[in-house]
């Protein structure tokens, strides 16, 4: 899922200070799973903002908190926003960057402010209650030859033929030898499976045209499929 983090409250106050009527819009998708942008968080944030203003003796902002099933769906968002969008002079979005832009396209005349920072595509490990970055949407997935471990994302240098000289006892130089070196993970897994041939194989430089921005895809046509031979 997409991992988002709420921006610091002071930053949110600063970004929204000119609005008299503010609509906080949560998202029930990824942002709610990471407990940042769901309906509950939208309501909590509303109370926090109101309290801050009160404490500072500033003029109160009229705030309403709602939540949308999936902000990244344009039609769902348009329907959900319709009853409200005319009444507010600012929208604070708690979804990811896709959500912010979707809302901004729908409410052309109202500024939409990001209340979160969109971090990465990650896995949630409920045991450690942490989120781990797993994929960077490179557009040309090679997990089939790396033992299901993504070197593009989990190797700090996105090496195709790692590990680099910076690994020590399976740990990566980036961040001070605390994180696992993705290439040692890959090596161990492939070795276990008797597939070191996949490790030693030379992976030639990638064609970065497949991840050139901005990308688009469609469900029905072949355009959506990767065309790498």
């Amino acid at each position: 899922m997409i991992i988002v983090k709420q921006k610091h409250l002071s930053k949110i106050l600063e970004m929204t200070k000119d609005f008299k009527k503010l609509l906080i819009v949560g998202c029930d998708g990824c942002a709610s799973v990471v407990q940042v942008g769901g309906e509950r968080q939208a309501k909590i944030l509303k109370s926090l903002l109101e309290m801050e203003k009160k404490m500072k003796g500033e003029e109160p902002t009229a705030i309403k908190a709602i939540s949308i099933l999936r902000q990244c769906d344009r039609q769902i968002s348009a329907t959900a926003l319709k009853p409200w969008m005319e009444d507010y002079d600012g929208i604070l979005c708690l979804g990811c960057g896709v959500g912010v832009q979707t809302l901004a396209e729908i409410c052309e005349s109202t500024p939409v402010i990001p209340g979160t920072d969109t971090k990465f595509l990650g896995m949630h490990d409920t045991k450690s209650d942490k989120f781990y970055e797993m994929c960077s949407a490179c557009g040309d997935c090679l997990l089939f030859e790396t033992g299901g471990i993504c070197p593009i994302t989990r190797c700090a240098k996105s090496l195709l033929n790692g590990p680099c000289g910076g690994q020590t006892e399976g740990k990566c130089e980036v961040g001070g030898w605390k994180n696992d070196c993705a290439w040692i993970l890959i090596y161990n897994r492939l070795k276990e499976r008797g597939r070191l041939d996949l490790f030693t194989k030379f992976r030639a430089p990638r064609d970065y045209r497949v991840s050139e921005h901005p990308r688009e895809a469609s469900i029905d046509s072949d355009e959506g499929k990767s065309s790498n031979e």
Partner: peptide, 23 residues
């Protein structure tokens, strides 16, 4: 390949790594 940008004196830099040393 080179040490990662983050270990150096300009850690804010965007690392390139378009090719790795093998490439």
């Amino acid at each position: 390949t080179g040490d990662h940008t983050t270990v150096g004196d300009t850690p804010q830099a965007k690392p390139v790594f378009d090719l790795d040393s093998a490439g």
